[in-house]
Design a binder for these strands. Structure first.
Lengths: 219, 219
DNA sequence: CCGATTCGATAACACCGTTCTTTATAACGA
DNA sequence: TCGTTATAAAGAACGGTGTTATCGAATCGG
């Protein structure tokens, strides 16, 4: 006839607990038993609602991309499109540093065989398109030479992601380098690399840094 | 009086087995029991020789940096220092893709508290200095404006590492983008960002790609 | 050659993800 | 409204993990 329905609130609680444990205590704390216990359920709940721990973590990943997208849209669009891209860059770094464990699972390398679900691809692509749009403005009303905004966004993304993962790996702290200055140089050289005048690029960088500081996104 | 001495050959075998398992089957296969069994020892050997699985993996990491340094030095130094930097960039990507699991543990983010050992810092810094030296040549005899080679190397490293980790995460394969073209654009925009003429940068990129293809370092 | 001392193999402990078994509950047909 | 039934959810169990305690065996100095 008609079976018993699963309680959606349990799934929500499991997801929230998993996200909190990941953020506060790191990936080692996200175990099926721990998540289920703190959510007031048994380990079976993980499997009835998500199927496996991997899919629970995938749900956390999706939620992470949603919040990441909101953070990347927070810096306002102004009359300086390059500073807007750079401000988004600082927001990017801020998210990676403050949500380090979440950022890690979001961008972890997957084995070559496994392919991500459609939902995951869409949620991650949405955040990427947020960058693409800001770069388009640099080519349209701004000083950059942007033949293909997607290709340009890939370059910027590579530099931003690279710096953040290197900073998270402990490089700057280990050898006494200033990560803010280092990241700023990445943004600066990218702007120059897209054809902008070095002085103007430096000015946009300063503006973006001021904006980021005011938003509490520097350190 | 005089105790029994540990057998150094066991430590070497454990290290070799761990490195092989990591490369062939990924991090999940590197368990104390599996490593010890395949090395013809008991799990206790891991603890007498390394102290813990983490330290065994740290030893694998050190060995990885040693091999990584050799790979990065393979591209010859020619009369085109920019192409030499780019050729090293292709060697970098080739290592990251062919030794993906090793590359992953080498650059994985560490929790904020734990600091790496002196040996680890030195072995990783050595590979970074290999890049610094090539970039110095671009500023000395070449067309780049390099005020500080270390800062410049950090920018190049960020872009290279960022692209490789993104490619390893499956982005390009997932959305049907050409990773070689994408990485090439990273190197190109970096060169322009360091003040080089775009046409000359494109020429250096073509040269580096040809050299990389001949060395079997493209795909 | 003896005995102190450490290596290393075995087994145990506490944890993990996952599955099996069982029970209780919720939703429909009558 | 009640009985049926399929499923959710709880708990124990299975095979794994890193690590450690126990203990026999091997080795070097005296």
């Amino acid at each position: 006839m008609s079976p018993r329905r699963p309680d959606p609130a349990v799934a929500v609680r499991l997801l929230e607990v998993a996200a909190r444990l990941l953020a506060v205590e790191g990936p080692a704390a996200v175990s099926a038993r721990r998540v289920a216990t703190e959510a007031g359920a048994s380990t079976m709940a993980v499997y009835t609602h998500f199927g496996s721990m991997d899919e629970l973590l995938a749900a956390v990943r999706r939620e992470g991309f949603r919040r990441f997208g909101l953070e990347l849209e927070r810096p306002a669009l102004t009359g300086d499109p390059v500073a807007d891209v750079m401000a988004q860059g600082w927001a990017y770094r801020h998210f990676a540093l403050t949500e380090r464990h979440l950022y890690d699972v979001m961008f972890r390398a997957r084995p070559p065989g496994v392919v991500e679900h459609q939902d995951d691809a869409e949620s991650s692509m949405a955040t990427f398109l947020s960058l693409v749009r800001r770069i388009e403005r640099c080519g349209e009303v701004g000083p950059w030479l942007v033949a293909d905004a997607v290709s340009a966004a890939e370059v910027v993304w590579s530099a931003a992601h690279g710096h953040c993962t290197i900073e998270l790996s402990g490089y700057h702290a280990g050898v006494g380098r200033d990560p803010v200055a280092s990241y700023g140089r990445c943004l600066l050289h990218l702007a120059i690399g897209f054809g902008q005048d070095p002085a103007a690029a430096a000015k946009a960088l300063t503006r973006s840094r001021t904006r980021a500081r005011r938003s509490g996104q520097l350190d």
